[in-house]
Computed example of a mutant assay.
Amino acid sequence: MLNRRHLLSLTGSLAVLGALPARLALADAPTDARFVLAIQRGAMDGLHAVPPYADPHYKALRGNLALADDGGAKGLLDLDGKFGLHPKLAALKSWYDQGEMLVVHAVATPYRERSHFDGQDLLENGSAQPHAGNSGWLNRAIGLMGGDDRRLGLALGPEVPLALRGETAVASWAPDKLPSAAPDFLNLVQAMYAKQPALQTVLRQAIDADRLAQAAVGSTAGMASFRPGNAARILAESGGKLLAQPNGPRIAVLELQGWDTHTNQNGRMAQALAQMNDALAALKQSLGPVWAKTVVMTATEFGRTARPNGSNGTDHGTATALFLAGGAVAGKRVIANWPGLDSGRLYQDRDLAPTTDFRSVAKAVLQAHLGLPPEALDRVVFPQSAAAKPMADLLRS
């Protein structure tokens, strides 16, 4: 609910009004499609999440990190006779079987170094170099969609990630720690701004947006149960309810943590994958019928080394796996120009070699699902990226 922190921010300059929940307000959106970008911060090991168990070098290369393919309870979930899913991804497996999830393997951004900071910056700014700009590719994409002052984008969390930053205004939502403002306090602020049209308008928008959030999420979505272990699920569930509103946002970014698995990868990956599985399952449930119009895409800064290190973990690598899920996805496929895992085919003799550009997948979603023109994708959203052609047939016609 609207609280004193939101209201007191009105007393500052107009520059601080960006924190207000008023940015949730939206009318007559230029698209009815929904898109969620789930950023896996820390570099997800695609060989662990989607093991290529039929590759003859898989088991020997992965050692203790190799998942069993014997059909046991702790073994991988078979996809197509060549690739499987980690057993903690049961929801995604059910979507795959229903034709609502696919995997793109051996995928990477143009980044070839191994810095988390630089890799995440490039992943989100959409250029071929880290720190090439201060705006994100998803913000620029939203800007091309029109909608005037309508806020199409939504950051799920207390901060707006780089992917959503830029000239186009976006929303943010997170459970609030502070108590709601008393009605008398609201009346006082409204009276104070009675002769300040700009502030009065923003306050009115904030109140309207709060009503939208209350109707979608409810007043019980507070911080009492908001902990690191279930934060992603709560944000995903609430975000889905907001996206499902006819006058709500259309595009959201959800951040998933816990992928930097230098040690004890079997346990840490199981936890991170379980949290992702639960968050995305909650997202689907809260979207309801709107799931049929939704695409969820995962993204991470880079993959991890093909061989385990001495701490039963992996270090920073190159290519990884990417998930596309949603009712709009033409699923039940693993798309992979598979490079192989023998020593001569690994990138720099250590990493899964990249064969698919991440931008080709993102462009396909933005063009086929959100209706952006190809020329703008190459020039504005992902500058100087004409060589990365949109992948075909990822979505239902």
Rank of each mutant, 00 (worst) to 15 (best):
M1N: 10
L2Y: 02
R4C: 08
T11I: 12
L14H: 12
A15R: 12
L24G: 15
A27C: 07
F35G: 05
V36C: 04
R41I: 06
G42W: 08
L47P: 06
V50M: 04
A54I: 00
A54L: 00
H57V: 06
K59N: 08
K59Q: 12
L67C: 01
D69V: 03
K74L: 11
D78V: 09
D80I: 11
H86N: 03
P87L: 14
P87I: 14
E100K: 08
M101N: 11
M101F: 05
V103G: 12
P110K: 09
S115D: 14
S115Y: 02
D118L: 11
G119A: 10
G126C: 05
G126E: 08
G126N: 05
S127W: 12
A128N: 11
P130G: 02
G133Y: 02
I142G: 02
G147K: 03
D149Y: 12
A155M: 07
L156C: 11
P158F: 05
P158S: 13
L162H: 03
E167L: 15
T168D: 08
V170E: 12
A171Y: 10
A174G: 13
L178I: 09
S180D: 10
L188T: 13
L188W: 07
A194P: 04
P197M: 07
A198R: 10
L199G: 14
V202H: 13
L203I: 11
D208S: 11
A213S: 00
S219W: 14
T220M: 12
M223T: 14
P228G: 09
N230D: 13
R233Q: 15
A236C: 13
L243Y: 02
V253K: 06
G258K: 03
W259A: 01
T261E: 06
Q265Y: 07
Q265M: 00
L273T: 00
N277T: 08
L280C: 06
A282F: 05
K284H: 13
Q285Y: 11
S286W: 10
L287M: 13
L287H: 11
A292K: 15
T294R: 10
M297W: 00
E301Y: 05
E301W: 04
A306D: 03
P308N: 07
A325G: 01
G327H: 03
G327V: 03
R333F: 06
I335F: 08
L341G: 03
L341V: 02
D342L: 01
G344R: 05
T356I: 13
A364P: 01
A364G: 13
A364I: 01
Q367F: 14
Q367R: 15
L370D: 09
L372P: 07
A376D: 15
L377I: 10
L377F: 01
P383W: 00
A387W: 12
A388Y: 01
P390T: 09
M391P: 07
R396S: 09
